[in-house]
Design a binder for these strands. Structure first.
Length: 594
RNA sequence: GGGGCCGUAGUUCAGUUGGUUAGAACGCCUGCCUGUCACGCAGGAGGUCGCCGGUUCGAGUCCGGUCGGCCCCGCCA
């Protein structure tokens, strides 16, 4: 039989009880974590957000409460009144282990079905089951910690930005569709049949308009939507810390972000040193084969193309060859090395070669084609010692992409990461922030066979490169920057274009006719002519940041109700079909598939 | 759009060459138990082998399709 909560008021959280509370009368409310029934004595572990407290029921002291405690089962909701006493045998495993609550009265507030899996951190349930019962999954301490951390982080961001003079301003969730960039989530208009809103991929244009409006400093914890295929670090809706400021130098934006992040890291009990390191895009590609280098370890790449000259014929090497040396890598099994070589090939390498460093020197199938002397020179240039492993990859650029970075670089970069992770050479507990600057403005799109914006088409252009906009677009540098943390792209931003004439020139360089530009961004081009201050900003991926701080591999672990890789919510079963009346109102008919 | 791994009890898994009544652990239910803390002991219930079709005397097992989960490539201005 269920009881009413009545006028009982909770006095303490379960997990807060300590020896100092001994003697106090307390009222606890929570979930039955476990029941240990010994007949005349029953132990209940009562759980709430804060943790677990042991409640003890004696048959001879509190008869009614004891009788009711016999009915308790896992995940029942209960309220207990009693006195905090010292335990006869303390349990050092839990924070409340020195005390227990001697129950005087028990109210059973709700029964529960047996949970589909245990409410514990170490759990074997599949992610599918967890997502189907997300409300149960979220009771687990790990997810409660993650969401608590996320709250703390957002709270500190708001405080820090308020102190720095930023206004938090909301922008529309029903926005204008954008043909460029990611696929939009569309929302049909009931009033205007055949017309659609789009959920924003980011508040980009709105925040720039706020600068034009003179709001000076804006931020938003903004939900963004992109209808693209998902990954462990990508959800169809995700959250950004989005900000924009007027009259900034690049350094001003860096400083704001560094201050905000310092605040967040300190609040999380971690140290971070300012100012953050800075690196040029070209440099990052050359040394790490990535525009988001993981700087927690060395293993920099080397250009070993010259050593391969004698072997070009036999190995059919057309492009360049880049190599990385892994300390202790010779310990990797044949199979592991083979995996890495296969990975390189699947990423487009025309060849991938391993050199094992033994006490007698290099051992490799490359010895014959390169020549022993040449091979030795190569290993020396990489500083490889006995016990190390060298991986070299060759790749050739095709067509116009030759203007971009050497294609062997990103593949070698992947090998660098693969080696470091397999050899456990990545130190944990280090936070290596770095700013990346000097990105090319344009990127060659192989699928569309044209130059496109590397970031977005409002990114500022380095003044001295403006003249090359039409003649040598691949040499034009942007005023964009990325923030990278431990090999993860945390965010990206730029000083924007604030002059209408420059913006129009860029659209033309992107192959957008004046009419098209006007059709897509007319309102924005107009706004630029009404007194636009120089402005710039950045957006940071909040989910990724929390995941990194929580030590989670997937951002699904830091989002309360995430979707699967097929963009479904297994708990709410969305997306769902709608009835024809709803469709009729919207003027929509579903096409027969096939 | 492509590749890989997976789907058997509430959960996580095992299941031989295709062969009689599909097993284990945990969980659940009943009873006993006054110091447990992953309590213990005794007993018990629990299965559309994801779904559809095919091969076969016979399919959890083989074949085709389909649905769902995870990881990766493409994609993500």
């Amino acid at each position: 039989m269920l009881d009413r909560q009545g006028d009982w008021k909770r006095t303490n959280y379960c997990g807060d009880l300590r020896a100092a509370d001994i003697g106090r009368e307390v009222t606890l409310m929570g979930w039955v974590h476990r029941r240990r029934d010994h007949g005349q004595i029953i132990f209940i572990d009562l759980r709430d957000r804060s943790g677990i407290a042991q409640v003890v029921f004696h048959g001879d002291q509190a008869k009614d409460a004891h009788a009711k405690a016999e009915e308790l089962r896992g995940e029942y909701v209960a309220a207990v009144r009693g006195r905090v006493v010292r335990r006869e045998k303390p349990n050092p495993q839990i924070p409340t282990g020195e005390v227990e609550v001697l129950a005087g009265e028990l109210r059973l507030l709700n029964a529960a079905h047996a949970a589909p899996f245990a409410i514990e951190d170490e759990i074997t349930a599949s992610e599918e089951t967890r997502l189907r019962f997300r409300y149960v999954d979220l009771r687990r301490p790990r997810l409660q910690r993650n969401l608590g951390l996320r709250h703390r982080l957002v709270f500190e961001m708001r405080r820090a930005l308020d102190e720095l003079g930023f206004y938090e301003i909301e922008t529309p969730a029903l926005a204008r569709p954008t043909p460029e960039g990611a696929r939009d989530y569309l929302v049909p208009s009931r009033v205007h049949h055949g017309h659609f809103y789009a959920l924003p991929q980011s508040p980009q244009l709105f925040k720039q308009l706020l600068m034009i409006s003179g709001l000076d400093r804006y931020f938003q914890i903004a939900r963004c939507y992109r209808d693209e295929d998902l990954r462990a670090d990508r959800q169809p809706e995700f959250t950004q810390l989005d900000l924009e400021m007027s009259f900034p130098r690049q350094d001003d934006i860096f400083e704001v972000i560094e201050r905000v992040l310092e605040r967040v890291w300190v609040a999380t009990g971690l140290a971070v040193s300012r100012p953050f390191r800075r690196m040029e895009y070209r440099d990052a590609m050359e040394r790490y084969g990535s525009d988001k280098p993981d700087l927690r370890f060395g293993m920099e790449l080397r250009d070993v193309t010259p050593f391969f000259d004698p072997a070009r014929e036999t190995l059919r090497i057309h492009g360049s060859v880049r190599a990385v040396a892994a300390p202790g890598g010779a310990a990797l099994s044949r199979k592991q090395v083979e995996e890495l070589v296969e990975m390189a090939k699947s990423h487009g390498a025309s060849g991938a070669y391993a050199v094992k460093m033994g006490p007698e020197g290099a051992a490799s199938s490359l010895e014959k084609p390169l020549g022993a002397e040449n091979l030795r020179a190569m290993t020396e240039s990489l500083g490889a010692k006995a016990g190390d492993l060298i991986l070299a990859v060759a790749a050739a650029a095709g067509g116009t992409a030759a203007k971009g970075p050497d294609p062997a670089l990103p593949i070698a970069g992947h090998l660098r990461l693969g080696l470091a992770h397999r050899l456990k050479l990545v130190p944990q507990g280090r936070w290596e922030f770095t700013w990346l600057t000097g990105f090319p403005l344009f990127e060659w799109s192989e699928t569309e066979k044209r130059w496109g914006s590397a970031q977005h088409p409002f990114t500022g252009i380095v003044e001295e490169d403006l003249e090359k906009l039409e003649s040598a677009p691949w040499e034009v540098r942007s005023k964009g920057y990325d923030l990278v943390l431990n090999g993860v792209e945390l965010g990206s931003g730029s000083i924007r274009i604030h002059r209408q004439d420059v913006q129009a020139r860029l659209f033309r360089a992107l192959g957008l006719s004046d009419e098209e530009a006007r059709h897509r961004f007319g309102f924005f081009l107009d706004a630029l002519t009404y007194g636009t201050p120089p402005h710039g900003g950045i957006a940071l991926g909040l989910d990724r940041m929390v995941a990194l701080l929580a030590g989670e591999k997937s951002i699904r672990e830091v989002i309360a109700f995430p979707k699967t890789t097929a963009a479904q919510d297994l708990m709410a079963d969305s997306p769902a079909t709608v009835d024809t009346q709803q469709l009729d109102e919207l003027g929509i008919r579903i096409k027969e598939s096939g």
